[in-house]
């Protein structure tokens, strides 16, 4: 089912978390920013790292490493914030995602993409749209809308409330 939705050649922005390469559909990426000061909103899950000032708008930033079970993103010269536009319950929402480094924009044909593995990744397989393959390298294509679905966010809040 994942693959069925990728029918024509699409451009992807690739980036690294740890040493794995991930990709986002370029149509969902607004821009890429250098890492900037984050303001943590208290009583929110750790992976929600805080908010930034994006030319006057307050934009939430998530740590995808934490979300995917890796260690927290540490700031380096390469750390970036990928500003993406996602759809949440039919509403458009601007969100920032931390990446260790941003690689490049690539184009993948549908036949270069395989369904995501059912097992064998640290990620919740629901978050994976497919696996791209290029030069013997695997690229994990993410389904952003699902990563930040309202259930995911609600679950995060619920977990926090138990702590509080």
């Amino acid at each position: 089912m994942s693959v069925a939705s990728i029918t024509e050649s699409t451009q992807y922005l690739t980036f690294k978390l740890d040493d794995e390469v991930f990709a986002l559909d370029i149509s969902q990426v607004r821009e890429v920013l250098d890492f900037t000061t984050l303001t943590k909103v208290p009583r929110t899950p750790d992976f929600m790292r805080g908010v930034i000032n994006l030319r006057g708008s307050v934009v939430p930033v998530v740590d995808m490493r934490l979300k995917f079970g890796m260690t927290k993103t540490e700031q380096t010269v390469n750390t970036c914030v990928i500003i993406a536009e996602i759809t949440l319950d039919g509403e458009k929402l601007i969100l920032g995602a931390l990446a260790d480094s941003v690689q490049e924009v690539i184009e993948l044909d549908p036949d270069q993409i395989e369904p995501g593995p059912r097992i064998g990744t640290r990620l919740n397989t629901d978050f994976i749209k497919g696996m791209g393959k290029r030069d013997d390298e695997f690229i994990i294509i993410l389904e952003v809308n699902r990563i930040f679905s309202s259930e995911e966010l609600a679950a995060a809040h619920a977990a926090k409330d138990e702590v509080a």
Binding site: T37, V41, P42, N53
Partner: peptide
Amino acid sequence: GRVYRDVKGIAGATITGNGKV
């Protein structure tokens, strides 16, 4: 925004003179 809709104790955000939130 709605991501933080259910956060207790915070009503909103503002941008300070130094550009931080």
